[in-house]
């Protein structure tokens, strides 16, 4: 029925080796070339993916939490881009400014007098690992409301004592589970985890959750600088 040429065994060894070699070389050259174009892929698809993230976010919906027994203290890895800043707790002030009617400068005692929210959530890192953590602190939305934001506010900048900077969309900043935390896993927040104040939220990747927060600035437009890692190429919205 078939001529001998039709048999699969007829692929000559030489031809096979040539095809295999070309495939391997094409793969290496191809991935190297496409790697050079990684920022193009990012520029083309990041706006689409950022928009998808914003669509998926329901600003009022609470993300399900975990029982205290599910906390994984050993799974949390501390990533720091420079150093752990030394902060004098007595002299510490958190400022809230920008497009607000009532700029604030708060010491730690007055922050700790505000209503405490505790949550056990999954902290997800861009690197792929995750850890279930308990965070206790004040809701960022309570603080923003105290400062009386102007009507055109759309973004929130967060400055840290070590020079790290971040920006969030307002809806995520106002989410009821976005906290400025001063407790972790039932104890006072350790310095390496961001004491005296850090961001904690189940709806953003870890690099959005600034440690050693000293300043909150409400704005209507994003500047060229969107965040330390974002300016190097990471996604800006980084929603979970």
């Amino acid at each position: 029925m078939h001529s001998p040429d039709d048999a699969p065994d007829s692929l000559p060894r030489r031809t096979f080796l040539r095809i295999a070699g070309l495939t391997g070389a094409g793969w290496i050259v191809g991935t190297a070339g496409l790697t050079l174009a990684e920022s193009v892929a990012g520029k083309l698809f990041m706006p689409v993916n950022d928009r998808l993230d914003a669509l998926l976010l329901n600003p009022q919906k609470l993300i399900p939490e975990f029982p205290v027994s599910a906390i994984e203290p050993a799974a949390l890895i501390e990533n720091t881009f420079r150093f752990i800043p030394r902060i004098d707790r007595a002299a510490f002030r958190l400022t809230i400014d920008g497009a607000v009617n009532q700029p604030l400068s708060l010491d730690l005692a007055s922050i700790q007098q505000m209503p405490l929210t505790s949550m056990v959530i999954r902290h997800v890192c861009v690197e792929g690992w995750a850890a279930i953590v308990q965070w206790g602190g004040i809701r960022l939305r309570d603080l923003i409301q105290l400062a009386q934001p102007k009507a055109d506010v759309r973004y929130v900048y967060i400055q840290s004592a070590d020079g790290y900077y971040e920006s969030w969309d307002l809806a995520s900043a106002l989410h009821p589970q976005t906290l400025l935390a001063y407790q972790m896993n039932g104890a006072p927040l350790p310095a390496k985890n961001g004491a005296p104040l850090r961001l904690a939220s189940p709806i953003k990747l870890g690099y959005k959750q600034s440690k050693w927060v000293t300043g909150i600035t409400l704005v209507s437009e994003l500047s060229q600088q969107k965040g330390y890692w974002e300016d190097l190429g990471y996604e800006w919205f980084a929603g979970l």
Partner: peptide
Amino acid sequence: FVGLLGGWLAGGRHWHFAAMW
């Protein structure tokens, strides 16, 4: 490293989340 796509984590994520579509 040889044959991987993206060069670093953000580059890998860019291609991964472009190709996912």
